[in-house]
Structure formats: structure tokens, C-alpha cells
Simulated assay, not measured.
Amino acid sequence: MLQQISKTVGITAGKREEGETPLECALRELQEETSQKATDLTLRGLLKSINKQDGQMKYNPVFIGEVKELVPFEENEEIAAITLWDLKTDIGRIDELDFRLFSFVD
């Protein structure tokens, strides 16, 4: 996804809404940011990172899944475009943390 504000390429992510489970959040964010719906996601692990703004350590769940049928992307206030990527082709600046997450997919 090409993020509207930072102009970096990244993967779906977001904050949980009140009462929402991590899985529900992942499914919602995927649909909000890419227009895609996954019926099933699998937890691959937790990603430990440090928030650059406040220095706090955090752990974020990492899910993988499959989209059975791609639907047309609808541009929104967060995301300018999405693309399927082979992890090899140069597609521009990629968020470093997001790039590390691809190791979970193997």
C-alpha cells in the first residue's frame, strides 16, 4: 500500500477499537485500507518494536491470511494505492519495520 501522508509503502496496520480483539482489528484494517476481505487469518507471532515517539516497547500481533477473490481497490484518506508485490521488484521506499515483517510469511 502507498500511504497517503508518509508516501511510504507499508502493510495494513492500525489501532484496536474499544472491545475489539486483535483478530477483529486485523480483519477490519485489511478491509478499510485495501478494500479486501479475508475470511480467515492465522496468528504468526508477536512483533516487538519501540515506538519512536515515546520510546515505549510494544508487541503487535502479526497475522497472515488469504484473500479468495481480489476486489477493486477504493482510494481512501489513508491509502493512495495498493499493489501485489513479488518482494523483489523495486517499488520505492518501504517502511523498514514493514519490510522485516515479510520474514513471517515464508
Rank of each mutant, 00 (worst) to 15 (best):
A26F: 04
C25K: 04
S35F: 00
L23K: 13
K52Y: 15
N76A: 10
T39M: 05
I50K: 11
C25Y: 04
F73D: 03
T39P: 01
Q31R: 12
I79R: 00
L41K: 11
L43W: 06
K68V: 11
L23F: 11
I50E: 12
G19K: 07
N51M: 08
I50S: 04
T34P: 03
E29A: 05
D40P: 03
L41N: 09
L41Q: 08
E75S: 12
T34R: 00
A26E: 06
E32K: 13
D54P: 06
M57I: 14
V71P: 00
L27A: 09
R44A: 13
T39V: 08
S49M: 06
G19F: 05
T42G: 01
K37R: 13
N76T: 06
E32F: 05
T42N: 08
E78I: 00
T34V: 01
S35E: 00
K58L: 12
S35Q: 01
A38Y: 02
L30M: 12
K37N: 02
C25I: 07
Y59K: 10
E77R: 12
F63G: 01
K37D: 01
N76L: 08
P61K: 05
T39W: 03
E33C: 00
E29G: 00
I50Y: 05
E66Q: 14
V71N: 03
M57G: 11
L23N: 07
T21E: 04
Y59D: 14
G55M: 10
E75F: 00
E78Q: 09
N60H: 12
V67H: 14
E33K: 02
R28G: 11
S49Q: 14
G55L: 14
K68F: 12
V67E: 07
S49V: 02
N51W: 09
L23D: 09
N51P: 06
E78G: 02
I79H: 00
S49A: 10
K58C: 14
E29R: 05
E32H: 07
N60C: 09
A26I: 10
E33Y: 00
N76G: 06
G65C: 11
G65M: 02
E78L: 01
Q53A: 15
G19R: 10
K52P: 13
E33G: 00
L47Q: 15
